[in-house]
Simulated assay, not measured.
Amino acid sequence: MKTPTPTQQDSTYARLRQWVTVGQFLPGERLKIHAIAEQLGVGVMPVRAALQRLAAEGALVNVPHSGMIVPKLSLAEFDDVLQTRLLLEGEAAERGTHRLDAAGVAELLALEQQMRDALKVNDAKGYLDANELFHLRLYQAAASPTLLSLIETVWLKVGPLSNKLFEVPASLRVINEAHGDAVMALRLKDSAGVRRAIEKDLFVAGQFLRPFCAG
């Protein structure tokens, strides 16, 4: 059997990590290594290695005789994650405001429009992909690798729930509002306003997701 290259292992891990973050895997889902390998066009070894890395980060649980399972968050766990996100992402948003240039603001505006368009046609994947990139670009602008790493690790815990937003019709009318508020504040270099908008975004989405938590 051919040993996968480090590059292949890393790219497989990055792809699966992103899938967890945007909710491509659902809470309680058992992941099938061969099916994932076929979907990615790689061997089972890099997939197995990637899943083990994700389990070490707490994104997955290795259950004896069942394999890798996407964990279900309890309500207490979800609330803890949400409070952590408010602290970390609010700080990253405020820092990023001062560093984001005109091109960066334009990119976020385009992503906000993509989210609007996705909501019009109930495109969960399109919305969640654009949403992740919107937040990622803003937080990358903060130029704090440590802060960004913490945020991305926390995303792994809540990402699998994110698709549930599209099971609540009321959420689709409001979940993108805060992104528009954030872009307006960014244009004014209003860092406190951007922070409030991001915190509002997380809080509003969180209220729609809480009922889907276990226990």
Rank of each mutant, 00 (worst) to 15 (best):
F25L: 15
K120Y: 01
V105C: 06
E77I: 05
K200A: 13
L88K: 05
L156E: 07
A56W: 04
K157T: 09
R15W: 11
M1W: 05
A106P: 03
Q18F: 15
G96M: 09
F203Y: 12
L88W: 01
D79C: 00
D79Y: 04
A192F: 06
Y139K: 02
P27N: 14
H98I: 07
G58Q: 08
V105R: 08
L156T: 07
L73M: 11
G180I: 08
V204H: 10
V81Q: 07
A170M: 12
G67N: 02
S11A: 13
F166C: 07
R30V: 12
E112F: 08
V61A: 10
H179D: 10
V183N: 05
L51N: 13
A55I: 05
P160V: 12
E167H: 10
Y127F: 15
H135Q: 09
E167K: 08
I69F: 08
Q113I: 10
L119W: 09
L161D: 08
V20R: 15
G23W: 05
K2H: 08
M45V: 13
Q207R: 13
V63W: 07
H179Y: 14
M68E: 09
Q24C: 12
V47Q: 06
L148D: 02
G104S: 00
T5I: 09
R173D: 13
L75M: 11
Q113A: 13
R210V: 07
L100F: 05
N163Y: 14
V105D: 06
Q207P: 02
L186S: 07
P71V: 00
T5E: 09
A192K: 14
Q113H: 12
A178M: 04
L40G: 13
Y13I: 05
I151P: 02
G67S: 04
G67H: 06
K164L: 15
A106Y: 06
L161E: 07
L202C: 05
F166H: 07
M45K: 14
G41M: 06
L138M: 11
I36R: 12
R85C: 01
G67P: 04
A56M: 01
G206P: 11
A143E: 15
A55E: 10
D117C: 00
V70K: 02
L109T: 14
L156W: 09
E29Q: 15
L82H: 03
A178N: 12
C213W: 01
L161Y: 15
H135L: 14
A35I: 11
M1K: 11
L86Q: 08
I175N: 08
H65V: 03
M45L: 12
N122G: 01
W19I: 00
P211G: 06
R116E: 08
G41K: 09
I151D: 03
N131G: 04
K125Y: 10
G58T: 06
V70L: 06
F166E: 10
V121P: 00
A205D: 09
A59M: 06
G43H: 04
F25E: 13
G193F: 04
G206S: 10
D190H: 06
A92W: 01
Q52D: 10
L60Q: 02
R137I: 09
F134G: 03
V70D: 03
F25K: 14
R137L: 14
D117P: 02
L172R: 13
A37S: 15
V63C: 02
F25G: 13
A130I: 04
G41N: 11
V81S: 01
D10A: 15
A185E: 02
L73W: 11
V194M: 04
G41Y: 02
V61E: 13
P160C: 10
A35G: 02
C213L: 03
E199T: 05
G90D: 07
